[in-house]
């Protein structure tokens, strides 16, 4: 008799996003926030990034919960990326003013 392993359908989910909308860095940062609940695997191919979500044993969230939370989190990561891109010069200038005329920079 062959034993068929039971599969918990709530345990896994797959999210596919366009890599023209989100970068791999966005995907990684967004996923990191749920590493207390699930493990992740990423696959980038052509115009897509596939995100495999697998819940940790005893996770308080289901894979479906994480699927939706991750989509929202991607929006935040995308906004963060926009801020970083728009403010690079200002960030460097502020640090330059902060460290100018100190013994730290000769």
């Amino acid at each position: 008799m062959i034993e068929i392993p039971s599969i918990d359908l709530n345990n896994k989910a797959l999210l596919v996003v366009s890599n023209t909308t989100y970068t791999m860095q966005n995907v990684e940062s967004a996923s990191y926030r749920f590493t207390g609940f699930a493990s992740f695997n990423f696959l980038e191919k052509d115009t897509e990034i596939k995100i495999e979500i697998e819940c940790l044993p005893n996770s308080d969230l289901t894979a479906n919960d994480i699927y939706h939370l991750l989509k929202n989190q991607l929006l935040s990561e995308s906004l963060r990326q926009k801020i970083a891109d728009q403010t690079e010069t200002e960030r460097n200038l502020i640090l330059a003013y902060a460290f100018s005329n100190t013994a730290l920079v000769k």
Binding site: E90, L93, I94, A96, Y97
Partner: peptide, 17 residues
């Protein structure tokens, strides 16, 4: 605004020296 932010940043980390 950049200079003022720089000055405040410097104040925040002044303890390091």
């Amino acid at each position: 605004p950049l200079k003022l932010s720089g000055l405040k940043y410097r104040t925040k980390i002044a303890r390091l020296k």
